[in-house]
């Protein structure tokens, strides 16, 4: 920017920067980082000293143990199946929960209030918590994983979709009521069709998250590829761990690509 354009009459002057605020913000963030790093004993020197250890781990982990692959197929498939079951059941249960939590569609304040808080509790607790809970309740294995993902899916879809439902045009639902339609008819013919593409999109998104999550869930004994990963890691079979990580990476990427291309066509 040259002087002439800056001085031209009629153009507003660029407001002065608030340096005090900028310095205070940078200072506060620096202070918090220093305090936190000290608290967990994080030091760059130590990190550098330990680098050889990390290098050794990397060297030991390479190349992947391809011969182990046939034994991965079963657990990989199970991971996918856990994600499918969790997404479908959770996706169905999320429908009424989302509808009751949408302010414009809910039949009453009390229902809305209870449902909304229920939704918030589901969302606040992490998927690992649910996995451990269900593993304790129904035993280690894929069923615990599927149940944990069901809850996780309800949390994801109901929150996102209730917001889509709140954004719909209420004129059409009113026309259904004007024709003598019940609350359910109003939902079915007036409200839900408007937000249906969003629902499908969120369900696919939840499926992506679930495939990824079902690997972690295995670490706490909820079935799938994560359980194999945990066994191999605890017996220091690093080339096999590498193979597991790579195959999960490929699986997640494939699922994401497919889901993304469908979602892009929807909304």
């Amino acid at each position: 920017m040259n002087e002439a354009s800056r001085a031209a009459p009629g153009r507003p002057l660029r407001p002065a920067r608030n340096w005090t605020l900028i310095i205070a913000a940078v200072g506060a963030v620096s202070l918090m980082t220093w305090w936190s790093a000290r608290g967990i004993g994080f030091s760059l020197v130590e990190l550098a000293c330990n680098l050889p250890g990390g290098r050794r781990l990397l060297v030991e982990s390479w190349p992947p143990d391809w011969s182990f692959f046939p034994r991965l197929l079963g657990p990989l498939l199970e991971t996918l199946q856990i994600a499918v079951v969790g997404t479908v059941i959770g996706g169905i249960l999320a429908i009424p929960i989302a509808v009751l939590a949408a302010r414009n569609l809910t039949p009453g304040f009390l229902v809305w209030f209870v449902d909304r808080n229920f939704m918030n509790i589901l969302r606040t607790l992490p998927d690992l918590f649910w996995a451990m809970l269900f593993a304790a309740a129904v035993g280690f294995g894929p069923i615990a994983g599927a149940l944990a993902l069901t809850v996780f899916t309800i949390a994801v879809i109901s929150k996102l979709w209730s917001e889509s439902l709140e954004a719909i045009d209420m004129a059409v639902p009113e026309a259904v009521r004007a024709a003598g339609g019940s609350w359910l008819a109003m939902l079915q013919f007036g409200a839900i069709p408007q937000a249906l593409p969003h629902y499908v999109s969120y369900a696919l998104y939840a499926f992506e998250l679930n495939v990824r999550a079902s690997m972690i869930l295995g670490l706490v004994g909820a079935g799938g590829i994560g359980m194999v990963l945990e066994t191999q890691r605890s017996t220091f079979e690093y080339p096999r761990v590498t193979l597991i990580v790579l195959s999960v990476l490929v699986l997640v990427l494939i699922i994401e690509k497919i889901s993304e291309s469908i979602r892009r066509r929807l909304v």
Binding site: A175, V176, A185, F189
Partner: peptide
């Protein structure tokens, strides 16, 4: 105030929901 995403027929059948 018709549901654009549904077929014409379904929209007209909405007139029958109360029946």
């Amino acid at each position: 105030r018709i549901t654009r995403r549904l077929s014409v027929m379904t929209n007209v059948l909405v007139g029958r929901v109360a029946h």
